[in-house]
Design a binder for these strands. Sequence first.
DNA 1: CTGTTAGCGCATTCAT
DNA 2: ATGAATGCGCTAACAG
Lengths: 343, 343
Amino acid sequence: MTKPKSWTLKSIAAELGVSNATVSNAFNRPDQLSKARREAILKACEQRGYFGPNKAAQSLRKGTSNIVALVLADSVEYMVSDPVASSFMRGVSSVLEANNINLLLFSGNNDHLNNVVDFVDGFICYGRPRNQGLVEQLKTITKQVVTVDFDIGRNTSVNIDNEQASYDIAMHALRSPQDHVAILGLRLLDEERLCRVQAQPNFDTSQSIAHQRLRGYQRALEAQGITLADDQIWNVPESSERYAPRLAKEVLDSVPRPEVLLCMSDLIALAALREAAARGIHVPEQLRIVGFDGIDEGQRCVPTLSTIHQNSEEKGRLAANLFVQKERQKALIAYQVQLGESS
Amino acid sequence: MTKPKSWTLKSIAAELGVSNATVSNAFNRPDQLSKARREAILKACEQRGYFGPNKAAQSLRKGTSNIVALVLADSVEYMVSDPVASSFMRGVSSVLEANNINLLLFSGNNDHLNNVVDFVDGFICYGRPRNQGLVEQLKTITKQVVTVDFDIGRNTSVNIDNEQASYDIAMHALRSPQDHVAILGLRLLDEERLCRVQAQPNFDTSQSIAHQRLRGYQRALEAQGITLADDQIWNVPESSERYAPRLAKEVLDSVPRPEVLLCMSDLIALAALREAAARGIHVPEQLRIVGFDGIDEGQRCVPTLSTIHQNSEEKGRLAANLFVQKERQKALIAYQVQLGESS
DNA sequence: CTGTTAGCGCATTCAT
DNA sequence: ATGAATGCGCTAACAG
């Protein structure tokens, strides 16, 4: 039996009677030594169970690790069950895996990038992190950063035109100036609860996709000559089972009952669809509903959902490719209006 | 304006006119210096934008990183969309996040642990990695390893009794010795395709959960005096949209058409449910179907699915807790027989 | 083509 | 309570 030994570059070099630089070169710079020598060394290493330079040391020395952090908007726990985020992660991971880059999942609830920044080559950020402190750090960090669905003044990002998309889909749902409309917003406020929102002039309109979408809806309302009731902008902090069904109930309880629901996510729209079915409200005859995202389930349900399809997987691939290629550009990618039976 | 400087422990120590050991202690070992001194140092660091020791260097020096690799059975791309795997990841990440440990996602298709082993404190492995080479490495690696849904002869693992669970649920679906039965297997073979499986005596029965489940089904068949047709054990490599619907079609095309489908995953069972509906086959009158896993969708569909509920999130939490606590035990956790309308 | 040297940034003795 | 020295494992210059 071979005694289990923990080899290092140095101990291997000593064992083989060559300098450590030569062993290092055998692994990292094939051109720096003869082919025969190189192969002999690699073979000897394999026999002894030395599988190459310690990556942690290599990382300290070279400053790169082949690891990228995927910074999520929310906790890993939440994001991993969100169909839109999952699609995005699929896209990212397919590109990274093809490039032999490893993926570190990083919660948007963390206080600091500190615990990981020295381990990774950079950051792909999906959605504005819930913890605003992270955003500030991302702005100034010296490593590569690609932001998706938000911007931080750096020049590599991937977005869609949320305002125009929202305008487009809303225009398909609105019919007459007398329509009673409700807007079911997602993260319009930082509040951790379901609530109504007063449209304030000082809404920070540039930042979040929620406000971009709100602007799109509002433009469509104007275009149709519709006045939105004061109390018909709603907010939930996430599209979860926890909030979406309750939101649907409250909105459908409001008087006069809205005839059109503009929903900032498909999951919210689906919850509304289910609540309507439970109450025997006919969609789209008595209630028109539009969503946002284009998740699969929206096309499997009855009636099918009218929505904006944003190809999240493609977004992920693009973000990862920008990262890998070190390209610096603000990419704006296309969306599709997907008309279903719900409007 | 402050000039952007990249501080190190050493440069900070020089700036403050103390030794680097003192700065190090200020961050890592509060008991090694006076409270006043410590606070003065920390404050000075914060003012200058030094947020603590470089983690990569720290990791090299201490040998720990606060990162754990989650080794998946398949590609990240696939696992992230699988509802069972997602639940598991939720459980794992909730515990890790609470313990301030970061999560590295690692594909089961990778050839080596090498690229990450030096960066992480250990491995949580969810399902036997598709690449068998990884399994061999996991067996001998010196870092901590927790395996879930498989075993590698190490003494920390989390499993359920797949054989007994399969027996239990099959017993609920089987009615008479004349029942025509089909088994819809998942990863019974390493083949990357949909195919029939000949029950071979030399099946590697101990290893995979697929074979444990098969044994459970077979025991139930015996108990009911049912003979399974030679050609009614099927296999697919994954529970995806790509394979499950095709499997359902082929099975329902086979003659004589089975009256009972024992499915090794809920996604497969759901595909069968849909295909049956499309053909106007009544469930459970003309066709009984049971699944395995207990995903949410199985309780939302019509008819609801009879299945084995394994709380995957709980599995994840347990695995992560075993990891964090460094406990060494082979845990066997409970499952629930969940009777729905499909059997 | 090969070997020697000097750090990467830090934590830990062991002195004082 | 604090400081000087050593090395974690490796790679990039440079010298030969």
